[in-house]
């Protein structure tokens, strides 16, 4: 028996479904061929690893989410049925003309000054979300490496070094628009190895907080304000500083739904 023929029989061997002749030939080959014997042991080990994988528990909101989607699609279906019931009779050229006009209007609106802030906002929903503290990641400005104007959580020497950066990066209070795009909390974690960074990130994900990697050492976390306590608890495992100092309190950002924290590892 050739080695490749032997490998093709591994699954049947594992399932114990080989014919007597095949079994005899394979076991004989495995006794003679060290390499195939090792392949077979590895094969069995892989099977063991796969069969020991524990299934993940589905999230608790799976079923409510299904009902929400069904309800949403039901609305669309009813709306579509209504449109169909109106029984438009439109010729193809007329439909094409309407489509062209709609596209043109959309283009003009997009490129016109009406889009500029302060004149007419075409995205009320986005602005509303922002005003409630739900910051929009794609529009977020990148955070400069020197933007960690932190004061110490515990008043140690680290705080003085961090505080010295404050005047260069602090934004004026009146500068409202950029402030909306800034994280609510800045965290600097020092003396942390890669492994601990990974563990921390996993903990963040496990809490179902959104985690965005900006650079290798800079991450953004969106978390519900109500879970700020848990966030502090995670950070307490590390040597860290955060700003503003009030962010060390569980009630920080009270009134906002979601807080955004920028975490820098050093």
């Amino acid at each position: 028996m050739q080695c490749t023929d032997a490998h093709m029989l591994f699954t049947d061997f594992a399932d114990n479904t080989l014919s007597r002749e095949e079994l005899h030939a394979l076991t004989g080959h495995l006794l003679d061929c060290q390499a195939c014997a090792k392949e077979w042991r590895d094969f069995q080990q892989i099977l063991g690893l796969m069969h020991n994988l524990e299934p993940q528990t589905p999230p608790a909101d799976l079923l409510p989410g299904i009902h929400a989607k069904l309800a949403q699609r039901g609305i669309f279906q009813r709306a579509w049925a209504l449109v169909e019931s109106l029984n438009f009779s439109l010729s193809i050229p007329a439909a094409a003309a309407i489509f062209t006009l709609a596209m043109l209007a959309g283009f003009l609106l997009k490129t016109s000054h009406l889009e500029q802030p302060g004149v007419l906002s075409s995205r009320p929903a986005r602005m509303s979300a922002t005003s409630h503290g739900e910051l929009l990641t794609p529009r977020r400005l990148p955070i400069a490496p020197n933007s960690m104007f932190a004061v110490s959580h515990d008043g140690g020497s680290l705080s003085e070094r961090l505080a010295s950066l404050a005047p260069t990066t602090r934004r004026p209070a009146a500068d409202h628009a950029p402030r909306l795009l800034s994280p609510d909390i800045h965290v600097l974690i020092e003396k942390i190895d890669h492994e601990s960074q990974v563990v921390l990130c996993r903990e963040i994900v496990r809490h179902n907080w959104q985690l965005h990697r900006i650079t290798a050492n800079l991450f953004l976390v969106h978390l519900p304000q109500a879970e700020l306590d848990n966030f502090h608890e995670l950070l307490d495992r590390h040597h860290y500083a955060l700003a503003p100092a009030a962010a060390a309190e569980a009630r920080f950002g009270y009134g906002k739904t979601v807080l955004t924290a920028a975490i820098r590892f050093e």
Binding site: Q56, V198, V199, C201, R202, E203, I204, V205, R206, H207, L211, R213
Partner: peptide
């Protein structure tokens, strides 16, 4: 990446 897709240590 391998790091950011997994759940935490349970």
């Amino acid at each position: 990446s391998l790091d950011d897709t997994e759940t935490g240590l349970n």
